[in-house]
Design a binder for these strands. Sequence first.
DNA 1: CGCCAGGGCTAGC
DNA 2: GCTAGCCATGGC
Length: 289
Amino acid sequence: MKAYQYNNQVVIEGIKDFNLTHTFECGQCFRWDREQDGSYTGVAYGKVINLKINKGLLVIKNTSLEDFHNFWKYYFDLERDYGAIKDRLSKDEVLERAVSYGWGIRILNQETWECLVSFIISSNNIIPRIKKIIKNISERYGQPIGFGDKVYYSFPQPQDLYNKTMDDLAFCRSGYRCKYILDAARAVCEGRIVLDQLKELDSSAARKELMKVQGIGPKVADCILLFSLQKYDVFPTDVWVRRVMGHFYLGEDVSIKDVQRYSAEQYGNLAGFAQQYLFYYARELKIGR
DNA sequence: CGCCAGGGCTAGC
DNA sequence: GCTAGCCATGGC
């Protein structure tokens, strides 16, 4: 992987197993928007960048080589060999199809706090509305960042939401989840949960810590573990994943617990990758609906 | 109108 | 340990 800087953009050669649509539309993140030219613009680490891939060449606008090596290549998981992962998963017939469909998915390494709040909001919700709620919160309590002729907003820090009230958050339209967002901010600010320590724990222990926060149950915890803490042995099981697993393997009325047991046996430490290929495949093709 | 959405909480067994 | 009903919101 060779990276060069030209003016305010970084160009990376030899990009494989990376498709922006697959990666940004597979439900793992809520802060990236497609532009008319097929590129994507989004906010992370308090910075706005725009990405485009053309013939194995990744162009990142509005960044530096320093930032690329310090966090973007980590954020986009560019140093992982997805070819090897896909080969191992593709031994299964169904996964072979799912991997072939979402061949360019990379599991992002998102910021834990933003990921945590995002997936609290995701519970019993739909993706377009989740994106809108996160946008609302960022515009109200985040910091403005100019890029091109637009203004973007960083996601607020825990202290920015600390001591806010239900009335303060009512504008964002997240309903009963407002209470959970406030509890999460309190939990972090008061040290009831230390996000920076979670990566040192194994998945099971980290999940227990996360579930101390109101609004974080097993599924939301697994999403936070997978999308921001590099825990790849989890298999977040929502209605779509339960349906697709029931449809192809376990019977339509399978329980979440049986899906968890099966995925652990079948996929082991690649469960998280398998889950993303299956989720994207199932949701895009509306399998089981 | 009812049903559903990347579920979780609570009460009741 | 498990399940049933409830929960704001908004699109269909």
